[in-house]
């Protein structure tokens, strides 16, 4: 029996490149087909999840109204021929007497691993938050994902005032603006706070203008 290890003839660069290119194209084609087949159901699930989340962050309003951000003003009607996916949206919530409860605003920002998308209920007149829910996040399991699973953290957003101020767990002066961040998930919890502060500052003038115009308050 020979001790020589059989030598494999080298493969040409062209064949290597062609193999990877064809494999990539086939993979891409399959993924596009599966994406097209699953997307309608995924979008329907997301719409239902959003509807339930709006109810949660606005503390179960009696009615809601969808508003679109068109040319830096809020309107319930889309321009003719426009798709609603092209415009940022907020949900206005009203109580049984028709009084405005607040607005549910979705906003996202880069977290520790990926984009963190947050929905929060906010009343711009009182500058009080009504609730917060993480819609999408791929933060580290067991650490960063506590921003949606830690009920103590999430519960703080039900009564805090904007602009929010993140403080270490167990620290702070007890002010309404303070949010105690999660130990071990400081970046993720800070991202949630920044998302709300940025979105509140961005939307405040539009919401105020809409309240003055539509409700006349």
């Amino acid at each position: 029996m020979s001790d020589e290890i059989p030598v494999r003839p080298p493969t040409s660069s062209l064949r290597i490149v062609a193999t990877l290119a064809v494999a990539g194209m086939l993979s891409g084609t399959l993924l596009v087909l599966v994406h097209q087949a699953t997307q309608p159901r995924i979008l329907a699930h997301k719409a239902e999840a959003l509807r339930q989340a709006v109810g949660t962050v606005l503390q179960q309003p009696t009615t809601t109204q969808l508003l679109y951000r068109v040319d830096e003003r809020l309107t319930a009607e889309l321009p003719e021929g426009a798709s609603e996916r092209d415009f940022a949206q907020v949900h206005a919530g009203f109580d049984a007497d028709g009084a405005l409860v607040g607005f549910a605003i979705a906003h996202s920002k880069a977290g520790f691993q990926d984009q963190v998308r947050v929905l929060f209920g906010w009343n711009p007149r009182s500058e009080r938050l009504l609730g917060m829910k993480v819609l999408e996040s791929r933060e580290t399991p067991g650490l960063g994902d506590k921003i949606e699973k830690d009920l103590d953290f999430v519960g703080q957003f039900g009564s805090a005032s904007t602009p929010l101020l993140g403080v270490k767990a167990g620290a702070g002066s007890g002010a309404q603006q303070e949010i105690h961040m999660i130990t071990g998930a400081t970046i993720s919890s800070r991202v949630v706070i920044e998302v709300i502060n940025e979105a509140a500052a961005d939307w405040a003038p539009l919401l105020e203008a809409w309240i003055a115009e539509a409700i006349g308050a």
């Binding site: 064949r15 290597i16 193999t19 494999a23 993979s27 993924l31 599966v34 699953t38 995924i42 699930h45």
Partner: peptide, 27 residues
């Protein structure tokens, strides 16, 4: 599949099926 790029190709194939499983579960 050429021997030199077999691992890359296997990972591409595995990643494709993982993405299909990911989208299927989400739907």
């Amino acid at each position: 599949i050429p021997h030199e790029v077999r691992i890359s190709t296997y990972i591409l194939i595995i990643a494709t099926f993982v993405t299909v499983a990911d989208m299927g579960l989400e739907a």
